[in-house]
Amino acid sequence: MDSPSAYVFLGPTVSVTVAAGNTIHVTSTAVLGTTNITGATMSRLSVCHQPAAGGVLIDNDADWSVVRIPVNTSIPMAVSQRISGLAAGTYNVGMCYRMAAGQSGNWNDNDWVTSKVLVLL
């Protein structure tokens, strides 16, 4: 879905409970592509976390990238992030994106998303 001003999770998330002082390390990979004649663009691709109770997705350290691909292209994209300074609690973590209006339909040749999460005690 289009989401120009707020992050949206891309694919499944992992539910993680941390204690104060723990650090989360997240690595996510997705194969994304397009057959659209004008290609496809994503304004931000990153890793986000969100309190389990809900709320805004947070891109720790604003560690995002812009992605732009041409027609008939499908490639793996990887993002990783080290999240520290979290309050004790449970969080959802995973790959996330922002996308300009009208762009989500251009990403029409996608495959699987995988996220690996480690908690450093």
Binding site: P12, V14, S15, V16, T17, W112, S115, V117, V119
Partner: peptide, 12 residues
Amino acid sequence: GTLVMLGIGERR
């Protein structure tokens, strides 16, 4: 014995 991490994955 408390569940502290959960990921639900699908199979191809």
